[in-house]
Design a protein around this nucleic acid. Sequence first.
RNA 1: GACCCCGUAGUGCAGCGGUUAGCACGUCGCCCUUUCAAGGCGAAGAUCGAGGGUUCGAAUCCCUCCGGGGUUACCA
Length: 497
Amino acid sequence: MSNPAIRVRFAPSPTGYLHVGGGRTALFNWLYVKKYGGTFILRIEDTDKERSTDDNTKSILEGLKWLGLDWDEGPFLQSDGVERHKKIAAELLASGKAYRSFATAADLEAQRKQADSEKRPWQRDVPSRALSKEESDARAAQGDPFTVRFLVPAGEGATVFEDGVYGTQERKHKDTEDFALLRPDGSPLYNFVVVCDDIEMTISHVIRGQDHLSNTHKQILIYEALGKKPPEFAHLPLINAPDRSKLSKRKHGEVVSVTTYRDKGFIPEAFRNFLALIGWSSGTDKEFFTTAELIEAFSLSGVSRGNAIVNFSESDPRQWTDRKALHLNAEHMNKMPLEQLLPMAEAELKSAGLWDESWAAGGNRREWFGKTVDLLRPRFITLKDFSGAGRAFFDTTFDIDPGAVDKNVDKDPGVRAWLVELASRFKGVATFTKESAEGELRKLAEELNIKAGLLINGARTVCTGVSVGPPLFDLLESLGQDIVVERLSKAESFGRR
RNA sequence: GACCCCGUAGUGCAGCGGUUAGCACGUCGCCCUUUCAAGGCGAAGAUCGAGGGUUCGAAUCCCUCCGGGGUUACCA
């Protein structure tokens, strides 16, 4: 599956954790390589030293690892190439493709204000541009600070490229400003560095967010100035918050961070599935994709152009993130091979402090563990449910839902006593199975001349604390005779406040 | 403001000149279950942003406007 001609990269800047948009970009790059072969490179764009932190870098790597998006080369630190970047800038300067802009911050402000009053955009530092090479060199030699700006060609020319998603993109040189390459302190700026590094790494396809669509023209100008052939570009639509604004941790909280999904019990494959569905479609009605199916179906031509919204509600915990993501997670959890789910359920129980070694692979209760997880998973949404809603199956203590008690236990004043009686009946059962449990329960209901439902619902709540869950008799069998008897025998005091 | 991108149910997508405008999530209802947030079935929900063209015929092509987004930094 190797294809030396294809080299893609994911290049996040560590000015924040990995957010869903970044995760989606990484996923698409990864899918591209998995589909067509090639090399996936990870590069950390830490040129802004003020805002970049090691913690952010760590969390980005963590997020990618959790997502299962493994890279072939890197992570490379963009800042390691600074000397190389400076050298290239010097070449550009020497060849007249760039110029020293001696305008101070105040000068620039004045120029911009002037441009504004003339109702035209500021585009170049005209006075500095007009300097002869000798004058410029002399001022530099005498220590005048300057930024290095790209000298956008004059005339009617334009940059043109074919975007893999947005089609032909054209921009006239006169609409492109002389953007800065180097700061006065000599440190390189983004639009310049990406190009240097993409050339250095012989990147063939740049797949990234649409916020770079306009920047691409500037970058192409640099490729041209350097005499290099630009890579293929493909831009992805942006992902916004319900208010259509950019997703930001400050404004929207943890929903935006990839690691949140890990911490909230998402399954990587399900999250990949969800991410893929934002801004992409296979062209069919299929929406549930295993990752292998995703790779198979993936194509840039399926990428849409409109920005999407992750639909979540801060006020509704049931909708802390997009319901579709939640739904997909539940579906994956339910459909994936049990052997793959078990280690995840195990990890969840461990982190909740509920793990029992006898349930481990090879342990004498492994089979029970597998059956119980299988019994529980159809109505679970995230891995968290194993330690939350399903806690009664794995621990001696569990939360009691007062609503369930009202509804199923105190519905009839006789229920508590009947359940205690049921406990003693169950205790006498030689082989406790769902069949024998059901037989005993129905027999008791008949003797008592009450509806079996009263016992069924009451037993469910007393044994698990809630009013929903797997079919009762399956549940009883899973819990086992001892626990069921013990819990039912305490029905009198159950949930009393 | 300038340049660029986008605009189909609440949300994510399909549709690419002729469809009763599909699918999924969500919502609602019914069935199953003497449980359910599971499963089954079904319903509501879109004047395809608006207005003009072109065409026998337009969500699909063209123009204008409006709305949203991006870029316009010595951020990335």
